[in-house]
């Protein structure tokens, strides 16, 4: 499944970059994220609770950042496994300034397998779009709230 799109976030690319590198703040923005712990440089262990009405499941997995070019671009890889199935994905993020905002372009490829894929197939793509949208909504909120008062 291809995932692609862009979002506008308040703040400079440096501010957005700082958010993406901070596990405590990042955990607040990732929908359903219950834990995000560093296990090494640019590697994290994650626990995510995904819930869409009746369908709910806990996923444990990892997140890895690579090819970092602060504050312009990076690649990320994620893997998650839970009772309902597994998720594996790889993608790239690109940050470009646009006036007082930052445009984040993302593109990637995700594989969803196991029961969730067999049964929820027709809803997975739309669900993925919702989760990405929520992540950017949360990030925008976090960035606005963390701005120093002037």
């Amino acid at each position: 499944m291809k995932v692609e799109g862009e979002a506008s976030l308040p703040g400079t690319p440096e501010q957005v970059w700082a958010l993406l590198q901070d596990p405590v703040r990042l955990a607040k923005c990732l929908p359903g994220c219950e834990r995000l712990e560093p296990t090494g440089p640019d590697r994290y262990k994650a626990e995510v609770k995904f819930a869409l009405a009746a369908i709910a499941g806990k996923y444990a997995g990892s997140l890895e950042l690579s090819e970092k070019r602060p504050p312009h671009s990076m690649r990320l890889r994620l893997e998650g496994k839970g009772v309902p199935g597994f998720v594996k994905g790889e993608g790239a993020l690109e940050l470009t300034p646009s006036r007082d905002q930052t445009t984040v372009r993302y593109s990637g490829d995700a594989h969803v397998g196991g029961m969730i894929a067999a049964v929820g197939q027709r809803m997975i793509e739309a669900a993925a779009r919702r989760i990405i949208q929520q992540f950017f909504d949360n990030s925008a909120k976090e960035l606005r709230e963390s701005k120093p008062a002037d």
Partner: peptide
């Protein structure tokens, strides 16, 4: 609250529970 699910005829919820996609 959200730990509970309402069961009526069970034709949507029970399959989800049997596949463990739902675990209320």
């Amino acid at each position: 609250g959200d730990e509970a699910k309402i069961l009526a005829g069970g034709q949507s919820l029970l399959p989800l529970m049997k596949l463990r996609l739902a675990a209320p």
